[in-house]
Amino acid sequence: MDSDEALYERIRRGDMRAFDELYARYASRLYGFLFSILRSRADAEDVFHEAFMRALDARDVELRPGGFRAWLYRIGRNCALNVLRSRERGARAVASIPEVEPAVRADEKLEGKELDQALAGAVERLPPKLLELFHLRSSGMSYEEMAEVLETPLGTIKSRMNQMVTTLREEMKPWIAS
C-alpha cells in the first residue's frame, strides 16, 4: 500500500487513481474533524475541498515520511478557523456546545444501538478543544502529530488528553457500573 506521501506525489503528476485512494483515506476522518469545528455540513464540505486543494497546490513542500496527515489536518483546521472568524461566529462556536440528547440515566440498561447513541451523545458533549483531540486521536495520531496540527505545546496536549479521557470516563461510568 502506497504511503500518503507517495499518493500525494502521484496526484500531482495527474494520477486520479491516487486521488481516489487518498480521498478514501481521509473523506470520513478529516470531514468529521472539520464538521466538529464548523457544525455545518456545507461549511465542512467547502473547507474539506479547500484544504485538499491547498495541500495539493503547495509548492516546494518537503514532507517527512508520515508527515502528510498532520500537515493536511493543520491546513484543514486553519481553513476552518478562518471560516469561523470571517463569519464572526468564532467566539459563539467555541463557547457554545450544541444541544444534544439528555445524558443517559445510570439505571438504564444500555445495549447495542442505545449504547452507541449514548456514547455519541457523550462525545458531542465534549468541549470543542477536547472534541478536536477526540477526532485527532481517533485518526490514530500520536501526541506529537496532534501538537503539530493544533500548533500547541506537547505538554498541553498531554494535559488535554487526560481531561478528555477523564470526561469520557465520567460519562461512561453509568453504563459500566455493575
Partner: peptide, 27 residues
Amino acid sequence: RTAPGAQGAVPSAAAQERLRSAVAARF
C-alpha cells in the same frame, strides 16, 4: 465510535465529484 467512518458523515457525492474534477483539471 472511534472507528473510521464512525461519525457516519462523509462529504456528499456532489462535493466529492466537485473536488475530483478540480483536482483533475488542476493536475
